[in-house]
Design a protein around this nucleic acid. Sequence first.
DNA 1: CATGAATGAGCGTTCATTCAT
DNA 2: GATGAATGAACGCTCATTCAT
Lengths: 219, 219, 219, 219
Amino acid sequence: MTEKKTSVRHEVKSSVKDESLIEKRRDQMIRGAVKLFREKGFHRTTTREIAKEAGFSIGTLYEYIRTKEDVLYLVCDRIYEEVHDRLAPLAEQQGTIKGLKNAIRLYIETIDEMDDEFTVMYQETKSLPKAALSYVLEKELEMAGLFERMLAGCSEAGEITLSEKEARLGAHHIIVQGQMWAFRRWTLRKQFTLREFIDMLTDQLLYGVAGRPQKGEVK
Amino acid sequence: MTEKKTSVRHEVKSSVKDESLIEKRRDQMIRGAVKLFREKGFHRTTTREIAKEAGFSIGTLYEYIRTKEDVLYLVCDRIYEEVHDRLAPLAEQQGTIKGLKNAIRLYIETIDEMDDEFTVMYQETKSLPKAALSYVLEKELEMAGLFERMLAGCSEAGEITLSEKEARLGAHHIIVQGQMWAFRRWTLRKQFTLREFIDMLTDQLLYGVAGRPQKGEVK
Amino acid sequence: MTEKKTSVRHEVKSSVKDESLIEKRRDQMIRGAVKLFREKGFHRTTTREIAKEAGFSIGTLYEYIRTKEDVLYLVCDRIYEEVHDRLAPLAEQQGTIKGLKNAIRLYIETIDEMDDEFTVMYQETKSLPKAALSYVLEKELEMAGLFERMLAGCSEAGEITLSEKEARLGAHHIIVQGQMWAFRRWTLRKQFTLREFIDMLTDQLLYGVAGRPQKGEVK
Amino acid sequence: MTEKKTSVRHEVKSSVKDESLIEKRRDQMIRGAVKLFREKGFHRTTTREIAKEAGFSIGTLYEYIRTKEDVLYLVCDRIYEEVHDRLAPLAEQQGTIKGLKNAIRLYIETIDEMDDEFTVMYQETKSLPKAALSYVLEKELEMAGLFERMLAGCSEAGEITLSEKEARLGAHHIIVQGQMWAFRRWTLRKQFTLREFIDMLTDQLLYGVAGRPQKGEVK
DNA sequence: CATGAATGAGCGTTCATTCAT
DNA sequence: GATGAATGAACGCTCATTCAT
């Protein structure tokens, strides 16, 4: 299904050799960058600010990256990695509505916690250099694929009835609802708690605004 | 409901007096800017490029705006205005599922046609200065409000059953699906035609993935 | 003979449109740059210093060039132009030893006056970008060609006997002696006046250290 | 004549005590530096690159020098040393035209072989710090002095007739012809083989372009 | 002695904005 | 009103040099 791996992981060169040090410094760097990108966006953030926020000098920053865009890539990559790690366990629950609901809940909760990171990722992705962009885009599709398989699994198990296309659209739908919470939380929060939001969007996904079951009717 | 007007229209000062000239020049400016912002983003576009694309000199550009951000505001404002103009007629069809469906179709089709403008608006909005940002955000809520009232209308007419909150979420759902088409068209197009997409999201909104009526069962 | 024009004039783009202003500013720029390059070399001279020496801001400097290397090219180009203009009239005197002697005198005197420029040109030429380098090198060959034709002319007129190759080497000899005066003036001056140097190298060229005519013997 | 030693050998401080180790490391360093300087010039070569090319770390490099300019000095010094060693034996042949011709041949052949080194030396010398520069310049004069004495020797032996001044100029002439081969080989090679070049410049030095002896007339 | 991570002054270059014409 | 030359603060990035290990 996803056997074709078109793009390879985009490597960010470092002139430092100690791998564990690279890990550590990049951690600092990513943490600082996320904060700044969130506050002022990628373009308004300077490399000196990133270095300062990370706790080292501009010279040191450039020991671990080659261009400012590398920082953005590192940030995006890290986020996908974390989201993937959090969501991966759900794959086991394939084939049940319950599993699907859990996955959605977990996904939205993840976004809620990593709000800064998500906002950065969705807003700044386009500033990535070509090669990095296609790698990141691929990872995004992977995430959609995860939900797509869950929906297809439910369909196969007979819990719902979905064509392949519908499963694909449904998956995108979920992903987009996540973006929605990341982007529009500022106003949605005035109306909904996180829990309410999750419940309602799950309901809407499953039953739509017209076909909702009577209270208590179905699970 | 929306009687509280918190922010006023953000005025962009011009040193030119002739109002019709201002109108004309800003038209040129916005047209050029949209094209450039779409291609390279707000930050990568220079004021010189905007002036050139608009067909006049950098000096003249600054006769009609005060800062580069003014151009962005002008662009966002224009887009909302146009979207609003296109969608406003729908308000009359309140209270029918058919009207709702038409509205969704028109909305998505508008986005499809004004793809450049929407992309710019959603990607660059955050670069707006505070005052302009809140004005633009308010206009965005207005748009959601339009759909919210349509959903509420359907509910009142008994076509569907929705609480106030559910109507609000449904409205956001529609808005976000629009963004989805603007943002993800590059991949969705591989799977769906515009018409298919509209149909499926409408279905989705109304009946969800689980509650879909049997073929032919309901309209 | 020189009918094959392989490389075209390397154009330096300016964002300023007024041609006469470009001329004027580049004059200032070249004058300042020559002075600085002479004192500290191309690499040790900063663009800010060039701008300051030229009498305008760094921003203005970059209105008239695109890169620092453009300044170097402009300097080299200007020098060749001036040398060529000074030497061109001599071409008429082809075919006489007297004309040749005049040409050599004029050439060395030019170098003596434009010492700074020549030193810069010979020392920094290699820092030119590829395209500019080949253009400048070609102009250098042109200059050698001028002397080559004069020597060939003398030979045809029967004043001296030279094969084509010998004429070519003789021409290079003259060019190199010029470089020598530019490079080694600091020490040669302790021993020779400019006039003495010119006389001796002319003698050297014509008669060598062994074949010198007895005093008064020949012209 | 050259009894006044104005400048002393410019010492390059090293924090390492072991003299033989210093020798070894500097050898590696010079070899690497010459290669790099030739390829990209002194200024475009980084200390890191020098260290890498030499086979040790940047830290180690700085155990054996104090500044980057030290490397340049070491390189220049080494080149003069080598040239001197090669040419010194010729001093014995003083007083004969044959010896002079041999010296010239050897000199040009040396330059041809050590092209890289010569180019570096002539191009980058000016980047030397003041103290080092005057030391190197003095060594250059020494080299000219070698040829000057040979020419004077020939004159004293009656083989040619030269005033002191003429001998000095002749010596400079030879030196400059060497530079010429180093600098202009790129074009001269199209016309002359090394041997031809040597023969012709020797001829020109001895007899000039006008006073050449008939074929076979003299030696 | 050897290493290489850390530093930060300084470089080339850009571009929003101004203002004299 | 329109122009475009001038400005300089600010940016991304480099690299000679240091010093703790």
